[in-house]
Design a binder for these strands. Structure first.
Lengths: 145, 145
DNA sequence: CCCTATGGGTTTGATAACACAACTCACTCG
DNA sequence: CGAGTGAGTTGTGTTATCAAACCCATAGGG
């Protein structure tokens, strides 16, 4: 992997979830799928690659692999806190895809606890105002190695 | 590309920005870098791959390529509305990397217009409450092809 | 005029990642 | 006994990625 380029947590994050199928596998686990065959079918990933990605996500602490049956041995994949923390990112990506990539209506729609169709908004945790690229400036910037 | 798997805007989004270096190139453009050589150096991507990614991002309407000098011909890459709409996702990914991947302090820190260090929170656009994976259920779900 | 530098890429040849089908293992069920 | 299920692994190609070198247009200095 690249040891060069800007020191950056986006790059670090992508080392963990940036490969093909990683985020889609995660999507399925967060949707409630727990079994290998199901994740394979719903993502469309080939089985060998999926096995490698799941291993990596488990190693990185994003998923937990648990044996739910001894005879025969059967496993399930569960989301950790790390995976749940990534869900807003996934939802943001989905919303961006809905708006700027897809044509036609969104294939997946969520409802929030408040009863309304979910649309995610990113706000400043301190003041509650939306994030706009112009209302933002860097205090510190990762160095380029 | 995968013609199989669940019909999903996350998958569609990743067709555009899911390859290696795409999001890092976008990060640089959103940070204000506009020139090929600078983006190449700051990301660490090899020049051929970067050229291919930038072309793809331009084709997808995420970046705009503009000639800013005729003799000799020189180009710059500018963020479109689509790119700006992706910034919260990038910030979310960065924050997740800060918390769950990195050890040590965040390499990059932003300040919001309100004067405080920026921490992004994802909330429901309707009720303003934070998104939690348990307070969410699917109304419609993309079919698996 | 020649040499070097700059910006923005392409080309080349080696290496790594990925895709697909088939196979294994450990069972259960009929 | 044979078929089926879940969770992968193995074998064999194809495609993508990598680093380094090269190309083109032009500017500036000697």
């Amino acid at each position: 992997m690249a040891a060069r380029g800007r020191e950056c947590s986006i790059a670090d994050a992508l080392e963990v979830v940036g490969e093909r199928w990683s985020l889609l596998a995660l999507r399925e686990v967060l949707l409630g799928e727990r079994r290998f065959n199901q994740i394979a079918e719903n993502t469309g990933a080939s089985r060998d690659i999926l096995a490698a990605r799941l291993r990596k996500l488990v190693d990185a602490g994003v998923l937990e692999k648990r044996q739910y049956e001894d005879h025969p041995p059967r496993f399930e994949y569960l989301p950790t806190e790390s995976a749940k923390a990534l869900q807003p990112v996934l939802l943001g990506l989905m919303q961006w895809g809905d708006r700027f990539v897809r044509q036609g209506p969104p294939p997946t729609v969520y409802e929030h606890d408040c009863g309304e169709e979910l649309h995610v908004k990113s706000v400043c945790e301190h003041c509650g105002e939306p994030i706009a690229s112009k209302g933002l400036h860097t205090v510190r910037l990762g160095a380029v190695r």
